[in-house]
Amino acid sequence: MNRMRHNSINLKGDRTMQTLKETKPGITVRVTKIGGGGPIKRRIMEMGITKGVDVFVRKVAPLGDPVEVTVRGYELSLRKSDAQLIEVE
């Protein structure tokens, strides 16, 4: 985990890694890594968010959480705490 973080800092200069949580609506990103572990990670992956897949952030819910994304041709809503585990580029 630490090494990954280190790598991504090196690649992107002084910027910290970007996760799906920080991605602005209207932007398409590619998933590079899914953090976390156990059942949460499994659940996220089984909904189609796997490494290398393109995710389009459609909108944020009226109260600021969750976010709605388009992935593999369908609309998925996920909480920001889960979106934070998904590293993107």
Binding site: G48, R72, G73
Partner: peptide, 9 residues
């Protein structure tokens, strides 16, 4: 049919 990819999983 409208989102075959996820369903094929």
């Amino acid at each position: 049919a409208t989102c075959l990819e996820r369903n094929l999983n």
